[in-house]
Computed example of a mutant assay.
Amino acid sequence: MTYTPLPPLPNSQKIRQQAIHTLISQLGIAKASIFLGELLWQPTDSLQLKDQLFATETVTSLYETILAQRNAKDPQQIT
């Protein structure tokens, strides 16, 4: 396997804005507000959540998934 440097990470503020916009467009403002309120005020064990979400993944498999999704959006992008 050859090493390919990782591209720079997107701006976290832009990610938050995109996520909120997606929630509102998919759920509507009322349901999105309820969801975000619950999410922000409920205690969360982020390490447990990470283990649940990515239990079967490796760094390599996640990287390959990210590249595949990025290439599906923009096949001309250099990785």
Rank of each mutant, 00 (worst) to 15 (best):
K50E: 13
E64W: 00
E64F: 01
T44I: 05
A19D: 08
I20H: 07
L39M: 11
Q52T: 14
L23T: 03
I20K: 08
E64A: 01
G37F: 06
P43L: 08
F35I: 07
I20V: 12
I29G: 01
L47F: 11
G28H: 02
L27S: 03
Q26R: 15
A68R: 14
T56R: 09
L53V: 15
A19P: 04
T58P: 07
Q26S: 12
Y63V: 00
L40M: 15
G28R: 00
A32P: 08
I20G: 03
G37V: 05
E64Y: 01
S61G: 12
L39C: 11
F54C: 15
Q48D: 13
T65L: 15
A19V: 11
S61E: 14
Q26A: 08
E38G: 02
T65I: 09
V59E: 11
T44F: 01
S61M: 14
I24K: 01
Q52K: 14
L67T: 08
G28P: 01
S33K: 02
A32D: 06
D45W: 14
S61N: 14
A30T: 05
K50I: 09
E57Y: 07
P43V: 08
Q26M: 10
E64T: 01
L62D: 00
F35N: 05
A30S: 07
T44R: 04
T60D: 04
T65S: 11
